[in-house]
Nucleic acid binder design. Structure first.
Lengths: 211, 211
DNA sequence: CGTAAACAACTGATATACAAGATGTGTTCA
DNA sequence: TGAACACATCTTGTATATCAGTTGTTTACG
């Protein structure tokens, strides 16, 4: 879905604004104001909102208005559960399907994340961690799984930014992907799946403890 | 996403038309003609097409036109792979989470499917089989997984209709869900997952043999 | 005779304008 | 003083019109 139409520009811009919290959860959206702010017409903005609603990034209440979807605890648990379901399967498949280039790229990314863990710049950590997961999904080369996973990863990114904004993370809240990478490099699907499951359940538990 | 706006009506109608092959794969879509045929304006139809494109039911080629997405063998294999990834995880979760009402409803549906297998009305079989999978996903009560799974199930339904249209199925191509149901009723997540995996890999192999 | 360039027609893409529904406020009556 | 009804305003939803881009065809030139 390459951005060439105004509608695609609006979609990409709005998604960015929602995920990086420039439009925080529960923000009400005024179509006309937003359109002139983006320098676009109302029609392409509307088309973009319709698509974002399918991703559940915004919630359209017919004849009442559109709002950035709020982020409740049940929602967050759904995100984690869905990620676990899809990404564990993805890790299993990727172990068999990854090319040497994939593994090399992944190793670089994982090392970057490990450096990020030593710093206190959690924004950079989040971005690089996100990149690892996106790359992993990319390995499978299945657009349908990719669609689903990318959406979940963005929801997840939005959540962590929100979560850490007021409660900056301790160092051990920033997890490594060393086990996962090692499993992939030894082409061990079951171990890769287990590593991913461990990775996701651990981070989920870090959230649940706080609530 | 309840249908009340014209845009929702257009979305639901078009999705039906695509999945039941009234609009076969690769059909080119003329917005104006379609709008007047549906008795709607062009704008809501456009919004609906934008959403259908996100589901990959139609393919928008900017400034060139919109077509119902074709159905190639690699696409079909992606559908099966994605279904296996998601639905096996769903089956695992559902085994622990299903209520007694869920199990009762599922049992009725599975028995209906088993009756369908005795007949030659593959359309009815497809609909009831679809209903079983939809119900199973519903049990998990996770809208994100539901979004992803429902989409895949519709893609799958479209494929089977296409596939069996010219090659009507033999009786053993119509699979049962007896094993899955029995695993769910004994609350055995691993067995439920295994039953689902067996179900899906078997039907995938039935396709691959023919190509 | 073949190829390339220009033109015309079609169709999608966006902007402008209009209509309808919902919400909040103000006034009036109990 | 409180509650209910009506009105006004705001915002979404839809239709119509205009603009721009792509494609296919035709014509002219090599």
């Amino acid at each position: 879905m390459p951005a060439q139409r105004d509608s695609d520009i609006a979609y990409a811009t709005l998604q960015d604004m929602i995920v990086d919290l420039r439009l925080p959860p529960s923000t009400f959206i005024n179509e006309s104001a937003l359109a002139s702010e983006l320098g676009l017409g109302r029609v392409p903005v509307r088309e973009a909102l319709a698509r974002l609603a399918k991703d559940r990034f915004v919630t359209i209440m017919p004849r009442r208005g559109t709002a950035v979807t709020p982020l409740t605890l049940p929602d967050v648990l759904d995100i984690f559960e869905a990620r676990e379901t899809i990404e564990c399967g993805v890790a299993y498949i990727a172990a068999a399907r990854a090319s040497e280039e994939d593994l090399a790229a992944l190793r670089t990314l994982v090392e970057t994340v490990d450096r990020d863990r030593e710093s206190t710049d959690y924004e950079q950590f989040l971005l690089d961690d996100h990149a690892v997961h996106v790359r992993l999904v990319h390995i499978v080369q299945n657009v349908l799984l990719q669609d689903a996973a990318d959406r979940l990863l963005l929801h997840s990114l939005r959540f962590w930014r929100m979560h850490w904004k007021n409660r900056p993370p301790s160092k051990d809240a920033m997890l490594s992907h060393a086990d996962l990478l090692s499993a992939l490099e030894s082409r061990d699907p079951s171990r890769a799946e287990a590593a991913m499951r461990d990775h996701l359940t651990t981070s989920r538990q870090l959230v649940q403890i706080l609530f």
